[in-house]
Design a binder for these strands. Sequence first.
DNA 1: GTAAACACTTGCGGTAGATCAACGTCCTTC
DNA 2: GAAGGACGTTGATCTACCGCAAGTGTTTAC
Lengths: 239, 239
Amino acid sequence: MSNAVASCEVEKLSEIPLLKRLSTEAREQLLSGANKKTVSRGEMIFFQDDKADAFFIVLEGWVKVFRATSCGDEAVVGVFTRGQTFAEGAAFTNSNYPASGEAVTDSVVLCIPVAHLSRSIAADPNIALAMMSSLSVHLHQLVLQIEGLKTHTGAQRVAEFLLNLSAQPAGSCTLVLPYDKALIAGRLGMKPESLSRAFQKLKSYGVEVQQNRAVISNVQILRTLVEQERTVVMHSARA
Amino acid sequence: MSNAVASCEVEKLSEIPLLKRLSTEAREQLLSGANKKTVSRGEMIFFQDDKADAFFIVLEGWVKVFRATSCGDEAVVGVFTRGQTFAEGAAFTNSNYPASGEAVTDSVVLCIPVAHLSRSIAADPNIALAMMSSLSVHLHQLVLQIEGLKTHTGAQRVAEFLLNLSAQPAGSCTLVLPYDKALIAGRLGMKPESLSRAFQKLKSYGVEVQQNRAVISNVQILRTLVEQERTVVMHSARA
DNA sequence: GTAAACACTTGCGGTAGATCAACGTCCTTC
DNA sequence: GAAGGACGTTGATCTACCGCAAGTGTTTAC
């Protein structure tokens, strides 16, 4: 299901990071060629190895981007929600998508064709600067993800994930896991069983998980776990 | 040690991917604000958390980009050589470098200040397109790296690394390891000891390593290893 | 020439995490 | 209400990989 963006909506979209720094004219220019797509949970948005002819902005819901290997194994590269862009990288390679995109909840995404993007940049080069900023953010996130995979244990990565969700400097907090545990596991580079066991370990750091609710009794205690080096963790996290 | 780029050199630099698609004028504009830096093996080029005020192009030698954790552990994010750009991502975030850069051999790098880049883009928006393309390539490489870490064993990642070096569809070949084994290990997310053992396993796939020379007796055999799924490898690679 | 430093390998023991299977708890569906 | 499925947990077992330590061969320093 596809639709043009109603002009009355353009203003609301100015909250989106990619569009925030643009002038009203540039924003309207870019959005004039965009399609709104409504996708159901489980529906594919684009396929790995297909010609990359568009990039996307999530308006509603959650989307995962992943690479599938020849034999069914998959590596989650990113999970995106409201206001975030994805697949912008592919839009400039003039080649194929390096990964696939799938809605993990019923979602609404804005689809911006590459051809239109090129026209928009020609019309207003500031759009290029906004895109670069957005690309840089993703680059940075991937760098962090690689660091995490290489130097943190599973439990540490889960702790990091929870801390990012809480976005709170200290004290206790309750938060809702944004998507199901199998996807969280994938996002963090582990199996669901390992995630479950990681949650067990986090109990001794004051984390209680029930269904999709997590309660952190003290954010700072949890942060000490993340900041410990790997070897220390191996010896202390026996609880 | 820093120097302006001699105008006679500008033309030679047109081989570099980032600059290849630019007009002569744009290339000269961009390079007019660049400094050539000569750095010795082990010398730092930029530091994690420092203000990101420049990005770089390698003219000669090898450079590694890595993140250091609080306790000396490090994660190699990329290793770059002649013609490749690095730290361009940081140039658009208007913040700090997310990683550090260090010369792993005596090297020459071109340093392009962010302020100058902004001016150049204003003068010729095509420069922005070239930068985006370059960012996208790095994004793609990081995606591949994450996939590798999540779904491949150490031996598979080593095989992949060798195959990339050979860039040959079939048959046998001899190649020279471009930098020392400790760095290769870091680049592939493993310890030097594990790399050494991975090379042992690859012997049964026709790979012989002596010092910094590797001989692959049949590229296709090695490729079958990379393409096997993880579980299959676990049972077959007992040799 | 000797020693010290370095790069790499090998053996051993240990841990994190994967796999496979069983089981419990919610759902939906008829 | 029974049957089935999606989701998650738990247990047992096994493998990949790490950390340490000892050993080799090569390069560098004096």
